[in-house]
Write a protein that binds this DNA or RNA. Structure first.
Length: 216
DNA sequence: AAAATGATCAAG
DNA sequence: TTGATCATTTTA
């Protein structure tokens, strides 16, 4: 059986080539990977448990649909492996990783994370309280959504366009996830996207409690 | 079910 | 310049 070069258990940083592939391979491939963020003298680590693929050229759910190029979508046209962070609903940030070759405006939205290290500081960033003081449902609530995890990891427009191999902000191999542990579904909250609304481009680790919305 | 809250973008 | 929209979350 052939070894998949994109899967291994390790804290090694993901190489740039990881992202330079079809978005529908990168999105499930990101499950189990670790997001690492150094902020305020703390190191935060979280395991990615839910992602969504956005393929701008053909995807009416994507900000970059039909190669729509604006100040906001600009970084998606750039090289793969960089962060695309956008501000939404006047209140929240969402983190994406840019995929595919330079000029192809595609990305993967990170929708759910399981805290691995630094949960107290995540809780502090989210609520101004340590996780120790939170009931279990609220601990789950820390990072189970795209806006929540950005708040918990201190991710803002400052990270927009940053490579995902920065000292204080990177992705590592983390934990191997078998294909049999991955579930798929339609994407969340893109009812405006016509036929693309039904594309099964959302990927989750089966049974993981840190997903934003349970699989239907 | 509906509010919160402001950047974003296409249209005028 | 304006106004509708929005890859969400919280509260009720």
């Amino acid at each position: 059986m052939k070894e998949d070069i994109h899967e291994k258990n390790s804290m090694e940083i993901l190489p740039c080539e990881f992202y330079n592939r079809d978005t529908l391979e990168v999105a499930p491939g990101l499950l189990g990977k670790y997001l690492v963020r150094v902020i305020g003298g703390h190191r935060l680590i979280g395991k990615i448990v839910e992602t969504e693929a956005y393929k701008g050229p053909i995807d009416k759910g994507a900000h970059s649909y039909n190669y729509r190029r604006t100040p906001r979508t600009e970084v998606m046209f750039g090289p793969p492996g960089h962060a695309y962070v956008y501000f939404i609903y006047g209140m929240y940030y969402c983190l994406n990783v840019v995929t595919e070759e330079y000029g192809e405006p595609c990305a993967v939205l990170i929708r759910g994370i399981e805290p691995v290290e630094g949960e107290d500081y995540m809780a502090l960033l989210r609520y101004g309280k340590t996780a120790h003081d939170l009931a279990v449902p609220r601990r789950i609530n820390l990072t189970n959504g795209p806006g929540k995890l950005c708040k918990a990891f201190g991710i803002t427009r400052e990270q927009n366009g940053k490579p995902l191999w920065s000292n204080d902000f990177y992705l590592a191999y983390g934990e191997k996830v078998e294909d049999s542990q991955i579930a798929r579904s339609k994407r969340i909250n893109i009812d405006y996207a016509e036929e693309a609304r039904d594309f099964p481009w959302r990927f989750l680790i089966k049974g993981n409690p840190y997903v934003s919305v349970p699989v239907k």
